[in-house]
């Protein structure tokens, strides 16, 4: 559906990424490029290493070999503070939302702001930023609630708001719609699209949800056996005759 052609400025480049846990070679030479303004969907079976790939990308897991370059920085060559600075430009939406359950919604959103004086200067009053982020996801009224008082879909949206508060240039979504009912999933999708329009972000979206992929992707990569098995637009892949590809579109 999304037919606007993004420009070809690579903002993330992954080359020959390898990662094993013991004898389990999860990633075995994975390559990927994310261009500026692009929505790149990554599909793969459960356990194929999608989450591992995205964690290596942001430096949560150390990769065994290969390079990850984000906005011109090779992340394995950055020291702690430079990596932290880079991370303010990359938002991460966790598969399980990962809200801090001992903090209110407000404190959850304020948390990422604590360490980022470089980007925002000293923030005297965080309320406008918190409110803006909450209004973006339509949950301004939950500001004083605790995470356990929210439904799964609401948690996902709050987590999205927490990701947005640093105004990242790139957002990584790990299965944003999994485990939600179709209507809520649609809401999240619309939200992701409106965010992209509003802030002109680039995104990597991991999903096994074909509808999600159809709606949001500019380009897709199938992750099979630890490599980027095939790449193309949704239309190209959906008519592919390769049985491994077809399996996803049934």
């Amino acid at each position: 559906m999304n037919t606007s052609i993004p420009n070809q400025n690579p903002i993330i480049e992954i080359k020959d990424l390898k990662k094993s846990y013991g004898n389990n070679h999860v990633l075995d030479g994975f390559n990927m490029v994310l261009n500026e303004g692009e929505n790149l969907v990554i599909m793969g079976k459960s356990g194929s290493g999608k989450s591992v790939m995205i964690k290596c990308l942001i430096g949560l897991e150390e990769h065994d070999s290969g390079t990850v370059v984000i906005m011109g920085n090779d992340i394995s060559k950055l020291d702690h503070s430079a990596l932290d600075d880079l991370r303010t430009e990359v938002g991460f939406l966790f598969q399980g939302s990962a809200l801090y359950d001992s903090m209110t919604v407000r404190e959850n959103l304020e948390f990422p702001l604590r360490r980022h004086k470089k980007k925002f200067g000293k923030i005297k009053d965080t309320t406008p930023l918190v409110m803006e982020a909450l209004e973006n996801v339509g949950l301004a009224h939950t500001i004083n609630l605790m995470p356990e008082e929210l439904s799964g879909g609401m948690k996902r949206r709050i987590a999205l708001a927490r990701t947005l508060i640093l105004q990242p240039k790139i957002i990584l979504y790990d299965e944003p719609t999994t485990g939600l009912d179709p209507i809520t999933a649609k809401e999240i999708l619309l939200l992701m699209m409106s965010i992209q329009k509003k802030y002109n972000t680039s995104a990597i979206i991991i999903t096994h949800d074909v509808d999600c992929a159809r709606v949001i992707s500019n380009r897709m990569i199938l992750l099979v056996d630890g490599i980027n098995y095939i790449e193309g637009t949704f239309e190209e892949l959906s008519v592919s005759t390769d049985p491994k590809v077809q399996a996803f579109f049934k």
Binding site: D84, R87, V90, F92, G96, A98, D101, F111, P112, R115
Partner: peptide, 21 residues
């Protein structure tokens, strides 16, 4: 128990990617 459940639910990872040590 507290840190353990934060680890399991990826809250510690979330802190890390938000740039807090």
């Amino acid at each position: 128990a507290e840190l353990g459940s934060m680890r399991v639910t990826e809250q510690i990872d979330a802190m890390e990617v938000s740039g807090t040590n």
